[in-house]
Nucleic acid binder design. Structure first.
Length: 768
RNA sequence: GCGACCGUGGCGGAAUUGGCAUACGCGCCAGACUUAGGAUCUGGUCCCGCAAGGGGUGUCGGUUCAAGUCCGACCGGUCGCACCA
């Protein structure tokens, strides 16, 4: 029973965290009462920029802060009564843990799944540091306000794109929240299309990716990303100056604002032309920042008539617009005032030998035609990029590579792991663009493992998402320091049966974990390739309409509530608030309700006797056992709790405090209020733990009442109810219904056109 | 802009999936027990109406014997993605 481990912040667990962890713990305890062996571990995701920035702010070392924060978290976790196995806890910052994070890097490196390439990062010219995307606000450094630039650095990547197809296809076999599956699908972003070649007059060609090969006859110009490698080569003399200037401007902007900034189209002409493979015409080649180097081939064929962005660009720079699809009744010659992006049901025009073809099926025909002519092929393109795991920071696991002038990048031998993160005081990033670790010569220079010459360590540390991508495997095997995860343990406990966490990790964390499981499986280290069989996203607890965060000042600390009401009341209250998978706004208004409920149970435990249980109560008792079981299994905790309250109300009404019902109540309450239930269980005379019992069984035969109330409607409006024996036939109910005063008033003397009878529920008399 | 989800009493929220709308809890009102009540217990609590009855789940329309639930259009909100060719 896994829950996403927290980043141990200085503030401690807030109410939102506690809500999520309690919900997960309820499920774990419930599964134990079902007779399962449950492993419920908890640990700390303690590396990363968060901790580092906070440490810089308060002027302390993260290595000093983190253990302090962890101690506080541990205190809160014990207080909330989670059934955590503390013998198998972990922190990603522990060398005994990140040794294996580094080991995993080496396995990927050796398998050719890790490689280095130049990639842009956000760079603050004032603070002289690399910034994470979250640290850029409106194109400015969140700390000093300076305009952020891009810099290109050599960085490490994992080849997750090799697995794009499998990551997508496997999703259909997972028992996950639908919203999470959708988010993953969108992130992977599969597009079917074609890669086409536009020949350059001087030889060579420009390759583009398009999902609309059916519109190729309308491609009237091309656009390259400013970073495209062909740009320098094809730009003509008279355009060089403006192209260089444009490339410089784009490079000066940060990565975020380029993407989400204003949509005004900018760009310049390169002076070059390329040949449209369908029409044979020469079309101008431009560069513009709306074309991104990281998607497709970094170049597009522009079809302004049928694409919004291309249309805007053509308008602005007065480029030709050729319509190639018309729908019924449209005039192919009429000039377009806006792009025609919806082309379903249309037919091709201005498209040579394809004129008149159905637009919906033209795509495949044109791909085949271009394939035959050697100028294109059908391809599948993914939006997913390779995973950049490099961080030019201090607080993370050093990437275990040594650079040697003769041998190149050499992996650190496995027996030399971990590459320990040195405890340095000046961990603040500097203007070099590399991690502060590079300033420490005694650490930086090491002999090359292959030739013994002086080598240099890789100074980038790895992404925290790498730490968290495999932690579930480590939990089971924390006591082994000679292997990352023990094969027998792994076989027994993984893949994870139930995983609960926040939807903010629906994409990255879950995707990276899945990718890593696929690789580890392929390399023979584990025998499954999907790490989490069942995943459920919990809802978010918000306060005053927004997510709890320290900067908003709306963080609610649970300790004071537990002081005042007790941990169990607070747990019960959080689970009763609303649907676990939806979350909600935190108000403490109703907390006295769950408290009163527990007090009533406490009194009942004292008053319990062997009683005769009247039939209606007996039925409710058995129904409650089943309903609570079904609800908790589905994480519908709020309705499970109301069912329990209803049973208590029914007992009070019947003045029947039967010992067996009280005992069942205590067991069913125990996942929500473990301390309280344990105490009640002992008061009921038991000497072993309530968690060593089993969920009470129910008897379907006893669950049904002898009589039922049936609603009587006339023309769909309820006019009366009648009490009849269970499963009464229609004639009996109809006869009883016709006796009713209100029914007579509305139905007597009118022709009965129809009678609808739903057994045990409703009888509808339709009169004319 | 695209995608996903959601609009139900004064409030948090229920509704065996198309079958008595508002379960359960909070709050509020009245009463009981009390020197006392911010404890406990009992009863009441969607709106209009003395009643009979009528209206009612964001708005408008549709399907159906029957719609909170299904369909169409709109309004409002939350979250995710964001020039993805």
């Amino acid at each position: 029973n896994l829950m996403m481990f927290p980043y141990p912040s200085a503030e401690g667990l807030h109410v939102g965290n506690l809500f999520a962890f309690t919900g997960s713990d309820v499920h774990g305890r419930f599964r134990r009462l079902q007779g399962n062996q449950v492993f419920e571990p908890m640990g700390y995701d303690a590396f990363g920029i968060h901790s580092e920035n906070y440490a810089l702010k308060v002027g302390l070392h993260p290595a000093e802060l983190i253990p302090r924060n962890i101690a506080n978290f541990r205190r809160q976790f014990e207080r909330m009564g989670g059934m955590f196995d503390w013998r198998h806890s972990l922190s990603t910052t522990d060398p005994g843990y990140y040794k294996w994070t580094q080991w995993i890097f080496l396995q990927l490196f050796k398998a050719g799944k890790a490689y280095k390439k130049k990639a842009p990062v956000n760079w603050c010219p004032n603070d002289k540091t690399v910034l994470a995307n979250e640290q850029v606000e409106n194109g400015r450094c969140e700390r000093c306000g300076a305009v952020v630039e891009q810099r290109a650095l050599e960085q490490w990547f994992f080849r997750i794109t090799d697995y794009a197809g499998r990551l997508l296809d496997n999703l259909s076999g997972l028992d996950w929240s639908e919203t999470t599956l959708t988010a993953q699908r969108n992130w992977i972003g599969r597009s079917e299309g074609a890669e086409l070649e536009f020949a350059l007059p001087a030889g060579g060609s420009i390759r583009v990716f398009t999902t609309r090969p059916d519109t190729i006859f309308g491609a009237t110009f091309m656009v390259l990303a400013p970073e495209h490698p062909l740009v320098r080569q094809i730009t003509t003399g008279e355009c060089r100056h403006s192209v260089d200037e444009y490339v410089r401007q784009v490079g000066a902007r940060d990565l975020i604002s380029r993407k989400i900034g204003d949509r005004d189209k900018t760009g310049v002409f390169t002076g070059a032309y390329a040949r449209n493979p369908a029409t044979g015409e020469s079309i101008p080649v431009w560069i513009a920042d709306y074309v991104l180097m990281e998607y497709g081939t970094g170049a597009i064929m522009a079809v302004p008539a049928h694409d919004e962005r291309d249309f805007a660009f053509a308008r602005k720079f007065d480029l030709a617009v050729t319509r190639v699809i018309v729908t019924e009744g449209q005039d192919a010659a009429a000039p377009l005032t806006e792009p025609m992006t919806e082309t379903a049901g249309g037919r091709l025009v201005n498209s040579g030998l394809f004129n008149g073809h159905d637009a919906d099926t033209a795509r495949d025909k044109i791909i085949r035609w271009l394939e035959q002519r050697g100028t294109g092929k059908g391809v599948i393109q993914y939006r997913l990029h390779d995973w950049c795991i490099s961080r030019q920071r201090y607080w993370g696991p050093p990437i275990p590579i040594i650079y040697c002038d003769t041998c190149g990048p050499v992996p650190v031998p496995e027996q030399d792991l971990p590459v320990v993160l040195p405890n340095i005081d000046d961990f603040k990033p500097d203007d070099s663009g590399v991690s502060p670790l590079a300033r420490h010569e005694e650490w930086y220079y090491v002999p090359c493992p292959t030739c013994g010459a002086r080598g240099r360590r890789e100074t980038d540390v790895s992404d925290t998402f790498l730490d968290s991508a495999w932690y579930y495997l480590r939990y089971t095997s924390t006591e082994f320091d000679d292997r990352p995860f023990d094969p027998a343990r792994t076989r027994k406990w993984t893949p994870v049966t139930t995983y609960i966490g926040g939807n903010e990790h629906a994409v990255l964390h879950l995707l990276y974990s899945r990718f890593l499981a696929m690789v580890l499986h392929e390399l023979g280290h584990i025998d499954f390739d999907e790490p989490f069989t069942r995943f459920r996203a919990h809802g978010l607890i918000v306060k005053d309409g927004s997510k709890m965060s320290k900067s908003r000042g709306n963080v609610v600390i649970p300790d004071e509530y537990m002081d005042q009401w007790g941990a169990d009341t607070f747990r019960l209250y959080l689970m009763f608030l609303g649907p676990f998978q939806e979350g909600g706004d935190f108000r403490d208004a109703g907390i006295s309700g769950p408290r009163r409920f527990l007090e009533r149970i406490w009194l009942m435990v004292g008053e319990a006797v062997d009683a005769e249980v009247p039939k209606p109560l007996l039925a409710r008792w058995h129904r409650t056992k089943q309903k609570m079981h079904d609800d908790i299994a589905d994480l519908r905790y709020n309705t499970a709790i109301s069912a329990m309250m209803e049973l208590v109300n029914a007992m009070r009404e019947a003045s029947c405090i039967d010992r067996r019902i009280v005992a069942d109540l205590v067991v069913m309450l125990s996942p929500f209020a473990p301390h309280f239930a344990e105490e009640c269980w002992e008061r009921l005379g038991h000497t072993s733990s309530v968690f060593d019992t089993l969920w009470p069984t129910w008897d379907p035969a006893l669950m049904v009442d002898d009589t039922v109330e049936v609603a009587i409607q006339v023309n769909g409006k309820t006019r009366a109810t009648v009490t009849v024996s269970r499963d009464a036939v229609e004639a009996v109910v109809l006869a009883a219904a016709r006796e009713q005063e209100a029914v007579k008033r509305f139905a007597d003397g009118k022709e009965v056109r129809k009678v609808i009878y739903v057994a045990n529920r409703l009888l509808n008399i339709v009169v004319g």
